[in-house]
Structure formats: structure tokens, C-alpha cells
Design a protein around this nucleic acid. Structure first.
Lengths: 250, 250
DNA sequence: CCCTTACTGCGTATGTCATACGCACTACTG
DNA sequence: CAGTAGTGCGTATGACATACGCAGTAAGGG
């Protein structure tokens, strides 16, 4: 009735945090949460998140579907564990003396790299605030980056949330584009070109003058540096934080 | 083989844009895309997005499941149409002479209000860039707000994307919190308190000193102004844009 | 030494879902 | 009045998550 640690956490999550006493009584488990999550992650990486069904993961492991439920309570729990496994540990902290701006920028770029390596991560339906070891570790790293700053704790949390949300959002747009590319075939440029062409067809320049102007300006057609949008948003964001830092400071 | 307009768009979307010649041949349709989308939106509003299945929507309309497929090609298409219907038209443009900062802020707040009224919107899996009439209208409104600005078209697009993404993200966090509240019962404060308590239990202060410091500081316990986080992020964002505007200007 | 007990793997069953297919019918066009 | 495009919908298919219960297994208590 009571969980091992009394945390009220689902079983898989307790395993992720390293609580979880080895059961002493029954037959030796032939599986582990770790192996299940690994298989699920591999599947998501090679065939997309949609391919991750309980049955399919079980098949990959050579066991029956229902065996998995001895290790994870539900599919959502598996999702959470997959997420934690995929994001991994944050990068090593930058050398001491690094400014907050560079630290936070590094943090954002590193997080983006993780998403880009695992685009399926962004398809996982979010269910709540982060409570897995690696999520907390990333959060810690972000807070650490803001340590040289005079901001109070509440503001630091808000900034980390803000930048983290931006990264996730921007990566999501990339993932959408990538999905469209694999779905329809062709290069990213072709997909964008098709999109702008459709929009030009649909969006009456009289009703949508500003959008039409943007479409006509041609900025959406050119072969874009894939990092451009991200760099742009991040710079705006950091500028905004800097304004607050300088105001607080002096 | 060729669609009516040759746009290559799915049938429901063409209907949304008002293309779509009335078919002259067969029996009069007993349904319309509009009625289907309305029923689906009402269902999502009252019972959540998960309650929206093709069968359930059909039942609500008193028709058979398969009838719906005469009007929408697939469920994803219905999602897109629901989204467009729910976001509705953007607010009237602010009086001429309004500064870009106030205009963009109004725009962001209005968009947030839409999400808050329809939390299920944020549960719809995103599939691509906006191509529905109301999405484009909101985009137009955002671009219009930046008109008094010396930024070039590319930068304007990026800013609108950036702020829009922020709003969506922030609203998503609110939706998560709301979901946790209805799932577990209790007030938002209780949910937050439970979260921080769990985190205090799990996050070793030695491994996560910055997080621990934040938890200890008590900023996460207090009864938060629900607008606080949003206002904070928006101000940072606008400050960041302002830096660029002033740099471009002068 | 054996038996209780907690735990394992898993077969089976249930209910939900999206959607393909084809049939019978309807109302306009020639 | 026939042809025909378009309608509503019954039926079927194949995934899917997951509840339930049974049979086997290994460690501990007597």
C-alpha cells in the first residue's frame, strides 16, 4: 500500500531516482526498467514516437506485452522515463568566471542540441513540471549559470523557465519542418517554398497586407541558415534579461 | 483528381477558406463542416480534447460515425479546423498612433486570453505552420503591431514567431497546472506545495545546490499571482525587442 | 526440508479508436 | 427519364492500452 519511499511517486519514477529496494522474494526479474526504456528510446529514434506502443516495445525485447506492466505503471510513465533518458545529463559547467550571458547561451544551445538529436522528444505530450533526475539537473545547470547575477531566486527561476520554454518551442518548429520534409519528400527549401506559395494563393493581400508584404519581401524563400531563427530569438531574450540585470545591479 | 481550387489542400481546409463550390449533383448534405467543428469544439470545451473522437462527435450530432468523413478527410484535419474556430478573429487593431510595444503587448495578452478560455487548444498536437484563416489573421495583427518599427520584414516575422511561441508556451504551463489541479483535487496552491515537497524529498541539496536554494527561498510556495509569470516573460521579451529596435533606429 | 509467500511472465479478454470499403439511395443534368 | 455524382451509413479491420487471473519460481520461516 505504501510505496517504498513514501514519496507517492509512480514505480518507474522511483526507479529513475534510484530509490527502489531490490525485491528479495520472488523469481529474479528478467527485465529492468532500464532495458525497457532503452528499447523504447531506440525505437523512437529509429521509427518515431508513434512506433512506440507497449506491444511493439515488448516485441523488441522478446517478451510479452503485459510483462512491461510489471516495471512501468502505464504508458505515460514510460514516456516520462524516455524523456529523462534522452535528455541525459547537462553539459559540464563552464569554467568559473564565465559571465551569466555566455553561460546561459551555452546552456540553451546544449539543450537545443539534445532536442535536435531526438526530435521525437518534442512529440511527447507534456504532463507536468519536471520531476525526473536529469530534468532537475538541467534546471540546476540553468540556475547555476545565473549565479553571477544579482537577480533574486524567483527571477532566476522565471528566466530559466523562459529560456527553456523558448528552446523547446523553437525546436518544436524545427521538428515540424522536419516532419513535413519526410512526409512530403524534398528538401526543407522546397517545403518552405510550397508553404509560401499556398499562402500567397490563400491570403488575400487586401485582407492581410502585412503578411502579403512579408511574403513578397522574399525573406521566407531564401535558403535559411537553420540556426538563424534560434540565434535571433536567443539574442532578443538575453538582451531582455540583460536589461533587467543591469537595472537590478545599478 | 484535381481539387476545386487546385490548392492541394485537404477538403476541410478549403471549406475554411471559403473556397469550395456547392456540389450541384447529389442529395442535399444534411451536415456541414461548420456544424461538425462546432460540435467538436463544444465537446472539447466541456469534456476535454480526449473526449473528441469521431464516434463521439457523430453521436453528438445524431449521425453515424462514418458520415463525418464526407466532410473532413481525417481526424487531424478536424483538429486543425477546431483550432481555427477556437482562436477566432484577432481583436480590433489598436487606435492608430499606438506604439509598437503596447500593440504587441495587447496582442500577446489577447492571445493568452484565447488559450485560457480554451485550454484544450494546447493539447492539440501541432502539425505544421499555420495555414488557416484565423491563424493568418492573428499573424497579420502581430505584423501590423510592428509596423511603426524600423525592423525589416524578416525580423518582424521572427519577433511575431518569438512572442507567439512564448504565449503558447506559457499558456501550456498554465494548462498543465490546471490539469494537475482537476486530476488530483485541491487548489493550485496545494498542487504547487505538493510538487515542491516532492522535489525537496528527491533533490539532494548537495547535488542540486542552486535548485535547493530556490526551493528554500520559498518563492515557489507563495500564492502566486497567476499573471505574474506571463507578465515577467513578456516584459523581458519586449525589452529584448526594444534593444534591437533602438539599435536599428539609431 | 518443505511450505508459505511475494513476485514473476504472460495468455486472454475488453473496450476504444480511426478508418477502408461498398451498398443503397437521392436529386440534379442532360 | 436515364445517367451520375454525391449522400448516409453498416460492417469490418487492425491497432491500441490495459484489467484480470493463472501458473510457475525462489527465498525465508518453521
Amino acid at each position: 500500500m505504501a510505496d517504498s519511499g513514501g514519496t507517492g511517486l509512480p514505480p518507474g519514477l522511483e526507479a529513475a531516482w534510484g530509490l527502489r529496494e531490490r525485491p528479495a522474494k520472488g523469481p529474479r526479474p528478467g527485465l529492468s526498467v532500464h532495458r525497457i526504456v532503452d528499447a523504447a528510446v531506440a525505437l523512437a529514434a529509429s521509427e518515431g514516437l508513434a512506433a512506440v506502443s507497449m506491444g511493439r516495445v515488448a516485441k523488441e525485447l522478446g517478451v510479452s506485452t503485459m510483462s512491461l506492466y510489471r516495471y512501468v505503471g502505464a504508458k505515460d510513465e514510460l514516456y516520462v522515463l524516455m524523456q529523462d533518458a534522452a535528455i541525459g545529463a547537462p553539459p559540464d559547467p563552464p569554467p568559473p568566471g564565465t559571465g551569466w550571458r555566455e553561460g546561459l547561451a551555452r546552456w540553451a544551445w546544449a539543450q537545443r542540441a539534445v532536442f535536435q538529436r531526438n526530435l521525437w522528444l518534442l512529440r511527447i505530450p507534456v504532463s507536468g513540471p519536471p520531476a525526473t533526475p536529469n530534468s532537475v539537473a538541467w534546471w540546476e545547470a540553468g540556475m547555476e549559470a545565473l549565479a553571477p547575477t544579482p537577480l533574486d531566486e524567483g527571477a532566476k527561476i522565471s528566466v530559466v523557465l523562459l529560456v527553456g520554454g523558448f528552446v523547446r518551442n523553437e525546436a518544436g518548429l524545427m521538428a515540424d519542418l522536419a516532419a513535413a520534409v519526410t512526409a512530403t519528400g524534398g528538401t526543407p527549401e522546397q517545403v518552405m517554398a510550397r508553404y509560401t506559395r499556398t499562402l500567397r494563393l490563400l491570403a488575400d493581400p487586401e485582407r492581410f497586407p502585412a503578411v502579403a508584404r512579408a511574403l513578397e519581401s522574399g525573406v521566407m524563400d531564401g535558403p535559411d541558415d537553420p540556426d538563424h531563427e534560434f540565434r535571433f530569438g536567443l539574442e532578443r531574450l538575453l538582451d531582455g534579461v540583460q536589461v533587467m540585470v543591469e537595472r537590478t545591479d545599478g
